[in-house]
Design a protein around this nucleic acid. Structure first.
Lengths: 199, 199
DNA sequence: CCCCTTTTAGAATGATCATTCTAGTGGCAA
DNA sequence: TTGCCACTAGAATGATCATTCTAAAAGGGG
């Protein structure tokens, strides 16, 4: 059974780390936002801030993957699926005042060169996303040899869209990028293979 | 004439902010890395850490733009230009042990929701990049109505590539994404417009 | 040389940080 | 009830933070 206090801590951490970064988020702030005393933070995460961040990356990474999969799988083809993902991301940004974005990217960039343990956790999350996207593209008719790179491009474009849209406070970038990536996949799936993505 | 001490401070800040984030980089560390005493930091940047970060984002953003433009302009067509940019980014990552990446993204994500002043600075840098890329795509034959969105996709994919390659410590993502974006532009430029990116 | 401004130098300060610690409360099983 | 364990609660601690401050060195023009 899920522990409610632990979940509140993870939820608060996820939102705060995403919005303010790892170093920029104090445990006191997490304690306040989650209504859990500092003693509870160390009770559930004896490894301290590092372990809390690692677990938060894992949990919110898995949750975000499930969300994207649900949005994608609700469509009937990969082009619509990709379009729906960008559309949903844009909508989430707009509705949350540009706060609800990728729960991994901010911390990942921050720790990639300076905290090996957390870097590996982030790498595992992204690898899981890429595997999921690759499988879905393959199942949707994308040539197996091209699926992995197109999946990588999809994830990268989504991440870049979060960055540009959040900084600009506009859904324009995310929407435009979504159209372009959908178009890329359309070209790949066309019966005439002459203009296919080569690999 | 450029002030050498000031330049050293900016250079050190650029590298440190990119690798450790804004909150994660102490002024003491910048002082050590740049061989400039703390008094000098406040002499050249009276606004303190915030002003230093703002000026660093502006300076390193402009420098990176110039670098990308030079790589792009050395090629004869936009497809080769885009390919060269991703290739150069991958090479820079590999040679620097995955430290030499986008000097804006880490701080931008960190401050987008929590520091309006720095968010605006980052937004201006990205807007300048997008304007530059849009112009080059237009000049290279991309339909004007599609150029802005394709430029946005190019920048977003590059940023996503930095994220994925840095976290995975592999140039694979950056290279694959580069091929895919080059392929997207190839489709756009094809004489047969049937599979063009629509807008 | 003197004078004046720029720049260096880092100690002092008070705030905030992650972490530890002690003392508890609440609930459940025996 | 008694004992036990999970959890709460936040004060105490020492480190590190950004910033301010005083003082002097460096540099250049007269």
């Amino acid at each position: 059974m899920a522990n409610s206090t632990r979940d509140r801590i993870i939820d608060a951490s996820s939102a705060l780390f995403l919005q303010r970064g790892y170093a920029g988020t104090g445990l006191k702030l997490i304690s306040d936002e989650s209504d859990a005393p500092i003693g509870s933070l160390y009770h559930y995460f004896p490894g301290g801030k590092r372990e809390l961040a690692a677990q938060t990356l894992r949990a919110s990474g898995a949750a975000y993957q499930a969300l994207v999969e649900a949005v994608f799988d609700a469509e009937t083809d990969v082009v619509s699926g990709v379009r729906a993902c960008f559309s949903a991301a844009a909508e989430a940004l707009r509705l949350s005042d540009y706060a609800d974005a990728c729960p991994v990217a901010t911390v990942a960039l921050e720790v990639a060169s300076s905290d090996e343990e957390l870097r590996v956790v982030a790498a595992e999350v992204f690898e899981s996303w890429l595997a999921s996207a690759t499988k879905r593209l393959r199942d949707g008719g994308v040539r197996p040899s091209a699926a992995r790179e197109l999946a990588t491009t999809f994830v990268a474009a989504l991440e870049g869209g979060f960055l540009l849209s959040r900084v600009a406070r506009s859904v324009g970038p995310m929407r435009g990028i979504g159209e372009a990536i959908a178009s890329l996949l359309e070209g790949e799936l066309a019966p005439d293979g002459s203009r296919r993505f080569k690999r």
